[in-house]
Amino acid sequence: MDFWDSPQHGGNSFNRLPPDQAYFHALSGYGASWVRLSYDKWKPAQRDFLLGNADRYEALPTSDLKQLRDTLDRAHTAGLKVVIAPLSLPGMRWSQNNHGQFDDRLWQDADYAQQAARFWRDLARELRDHPAIAAYNLVNEPAPEKYGGLAEHASAERMQQWYARERGGARDLPALYTQLIAAIREVDPNTPVMVDAGWFASADAFGYWQAPLQDDRVLYSVHMYEPYAATSAPNLLRKDPISYPGPAPFGGKSQQWNAERVSQYLDLPLAWMARMRLPHSRLVVGEFGCMRRLPGCTEYLEDVLSVMDRHRLHWAFYSFREDNWDGMDYELGSAKVPWRYWQAIEQGTPDPMERRATAEFEPIRRRLAD
């Protein structure tokens, strides 16, 4: 846990191919200390990588586990710590692996929570002694609230009312985390766990949690893409894209977004940490970013990073050299990628693009190098 006692800065790896040694050396070469690693896009032995099948978890597929271990070895060789971040759990298959459909089964049926606990117990048993592992991020961007009757970015009062109704049921996210951590601790008493807030790790979604989790090796994580209407891919398709800084839809109404509003929004998880008497060293901004081709993206990154600088937070930018989506690959600058990038995806071959330090990447590069 002492790794997390001082600010750690890194990047997200959500690649379709397991990253090679050059990839990890490049990230480490910029000054990163950790990588948040997702494996759900890798070719699985069965239906779902490492789970076998998210419809019914039985055991860890041996060949999937070997791919993961080999990748961890490469990260360790590059001097990087790794946070494992599954996008799927039993009964919660990641939508992009689920024909674009949100999978709500985990949040309806307690049997899937039991399967998820078995999965994490098995995985922790296998990885507990690997020197690269810095934390287990129990699941990426959970959203038990989505079909549970709670609007995104609802008021704190409304969130608390909703949780009072759902507490103890299948949509009780703190209860699920408690169950998963208990399973991990049966085989691994030491490795830290990282837990995302609800509503896809929204920075305001810890607001309904009434207490911290009862484990002294927990890191609390939020993701920062707000205002999503301005930072995300659909904005590029608008005839007149929403600008940053400027007014943008949020929580059902238009709000002015700028450095001050970014700071106010990120103050919400900080205020929750203070109420829970938890230090800033236990808060992580596990993802943040904006579409690199949008005017104002560099200013947005600077505004978000400035808040994290001020509070000495851990962070991982989204994303580093992603080989199946170029939207937030800042080393590519602001130009469109050529056809050979998409052709490599179709053919399942390695990413052919060369990367470099660009103006779009500069707010991140400068801080990694500090």
Rank of each mutant, 00 (worst) to 15 (best):
M1G: 14
F3A: 08
W4C: 03
D5R: 14
L17Q: 14
S28E: 02
L37I: 04
Q46I: 00
L50A: 05
G52D: 06
N53C: 14
E58H: 13
P61F: 08
P61I: 02
L68T: 02
D70A: 15
R74F: 05
T77C: 00
I84P: 12
L87P: 00
S88D: 02
W94L: 01
S95A: 15
N97H: 13
A116Q: 07
R118H: 11
R121M: 03
A132D: 04
I133L: 15
V139L: 12
V139P: 03
P144G: 12
Y163S: 05
E166W: 05
L173K: 07
Q179C: 08
R185P: 13
R185F: 12
T191P: 09
V193F: 08
Y220T: 03
Y220F: 09
M224Y: 08
P227C: 06
A233Q: 11
P249N: 05
K253E: 14
Q255I: 03
R261F: 00
R261E: 09
S263D: 14
D267I: 00
P269Y: 08
M273D: 01
M273K: 05
A274R: 14
L278T: 02
L278Y: 09
P279F: 06
M291L: 12
P295L: 02
G296Q: 12
E299D: 14
F317I: 03
E322T: 03
M328H: 08
S334V: 08
S334G: 13
Q343R: 12
I345V: 15
R356V: 00
T358E: 01
A359I: 01
A359T: 10
R365L: 13
